[in-house]
Design a protein around this nucleic acid. Sequence first.
DNA 1: CACTTGATTGGAACCGGTTCCAGAGCATTG
DNA 2: CAATGCTCTGGAACCGGTTCCAATCAAGTG
Lengths: 373, 373
Amino acid sequence: MHTSWPTAQAGAVSVVSRATDSAGGGTPIAAAADLGDQLTVVTIRDVAREAGVGIGTVSRVLSGHPAVATETRRRIEATMQRLGYRPSPVARALSRRRTDILEVILPSFNPHRYVEVLRGIEEAIVATNYALIVRSVERGSDPKRILLDAGAHDRVDGILLASLTPTDRLLDLLAERRMPIVLVDCTHPRLPSVIADYDGAAVVVAHLRILGHRRIGVLNRPDEPWGSVKACGRSTAYRLAMEAAELPFDPAYHLSRDDSAEGGRSALEHFLGLPEPPTAVAAASDMQAIGVLDGARRHGRAVPDEIAVVGEDGIEFASYLDLTTVRVPMRAMGCLGARMLLGLIEGESPPVGPLRLPVDLVVRGSTRRPSDD
Amino acid sequence: MHTSWPTAQAGAVSVVSRATDSAGGGTPIAAAADLGDQLTVVTIRDVAREAGVGIGTVSRVLSGHPAVATETRRRIEATMQRLGYRPSPVARALSRRRTDILEVILPSFNPHRYVEVLRGIEEAIVATNYALIVRSVERGSDPKRILLDAGAHDRVDGILLASLTPTDRLLDLLAERRMPIVLVDCTHPRLPSVIADYDGAAVVVAHLRILGHRRIGVLNRPDEPWGSVKACGRSTAYRLAMEAAELPFDPAYHLSRDDSAEGGRSALEHFLGLPEPPTAVAAASDMQAIGVLDGARRHGRAVPDEIAVVGEDGIEFASYLDLTTVRVPMRAMGCLGARMLLGLIEGESPPVGPLRLPVDLVVRGSTRRPSDD
DNA sequence: CACTTGATTGGAACCGGTTCCAGAGCATTG
DNA sequence: CAATGCTCTGGAACCGGTTCCAATCAAGTG
């Protein structure tokens, strides 16, 4: 763009394609419809001058301050419209020290959760005038770089961290910025969070127990791509649920694999290699469960007769594969997390402990009474 | 553990946990780590004063301007680090009239495309210091409100519109803002775009033709949730492909349904109700194709023997359902679209006509020589 | 030696809002 | 009539950067 042309346009110029009003009314200054390349911005000062008021008054109208006479307000609003004035979010952000932008950081490798969380967050902010900056984390990306880049200084008003547990050290770094942070689908003792209630584990175990299963393989996601802190404690929840159901606990039945079909397949291999393979597998995601189903098919193990499978997430495809699953309300979690974050920004104090949302067991054909045992 | 100080790059982020330096150096002003609630911002002026230079010089160091003596630069960088200075993106945005933020608007109801496009965009901007604002569109939301909200004034530097064809009227409104826009997965004569090459249609038709199919049902997405303008011309592409393959063209075999499994089921119902049902269906998405598969199962039609099915997208689940599909490089499209947008922002002139990326036919068990005919 | 040149530097002005204080206008009160 | 209080208004100062012009100084030139 060549801007070397004389730009010393004195008066304010509107961007509006002002209707060709023949009756030469007021508007002494605003000579609209200027040359194509010359884009001029209408500022609050232009509006003030045009409307014959002070900038303070215009600003008051903008931000809905009550102390403006109705007549004045009307005149200013008319002027704004006439000049095609549109306020600058950036200028506003600079002086208010508020950008009206949130940021969410989340892994993209579980597309279902990814989309649902984003939907939930947008649901929460759609009625506000917040915008949402998204930063996706691929497998194996550097957490430090991402978190430090995140919300650089004052670019955003708050951060949502979804399905990613920060390490204590990263948290220390973030804490310096005094930036509100809410965790979604993971927890940390020092941060407010929204998680799925892993009493879901109890429901799954109860379901399998009633069907007669006694050896349940628990497949987890690798807990912390980012941290030393235990993520949602899903594994623990299952152990407790099994103890409560008076089932034997065997660490060999608990393992952690990538959140992918491949991870599920690999887990099944491992389970089948045990002297006493589990008769049921509770996967940490539907994708993993699909891998388990696939592995079972390859090894000629009938589902659910030889091995039952439970997924988690509640993706639409699960129904086509007749997969029993734990439906996790990711959307609601995103929504509530965002609401919580908005509250923090407004100065509310964070709730103590994580907010737990109930999950939902959807029973389908992949779990049935096992034939053996 | 100290991050090496990034050399004179703009987005430099300093998060120095000021070590308790016993040697009481200078720092008369910036008393970091002050009282709990009082957060002090280190500005460029503080740095200038501390380093004994002018603000212009500090700014020059910040933006990597070459005309700074090495010694001075070093001193300023040291001072920045010592004070824990971090530049304000908002202030920078205000004075440069560049926010370094892009915005993408896209429908969330095809999760696969949604995620892949976002991944592609992030891939394009990860090495830059752009951030990405995401605005999802649900089915049936008001296009006008969304587009007008979008990129309000100067909040963002450019907009990506994915899988959403704007109407001419909306475009007029947007044009006023002189904001760079790139379309992804849709086209418009007045805007640069990146689309999948619908010679994919030719590949599909050829594939089915070789298998012996002569009546091919073409299932489309409702073309334009937003506009009067024809979207990618997928239907036309199929018509042309079929004409080229010397297959009869019958409008009854072309229809449009929701991009969902339900849409696929409904389409299949329609096709089966025809006097001569097609022997193959080319769906506009894998989700639709899954609905077709499901509908076929319910109606007791064997796939692929009685009816062949081709999907589109290339979602992972397609392989588990043994679904032949056209893999669309959404990620690459997002990436190239973003690159193109960055180019536009830099002042490059938009390419003429849409950029077309090749698609990829993945043949699986849902297409095989039909038994009848 | 006076003059030109180029490298480096300082800082006022500006980007477009918000905030806050002083002040104007007017009615009410003592 | 002066004092008080209230509503509404104007605009300087500020938010934290960038930009650009003028100034300084050392080196080079005739």
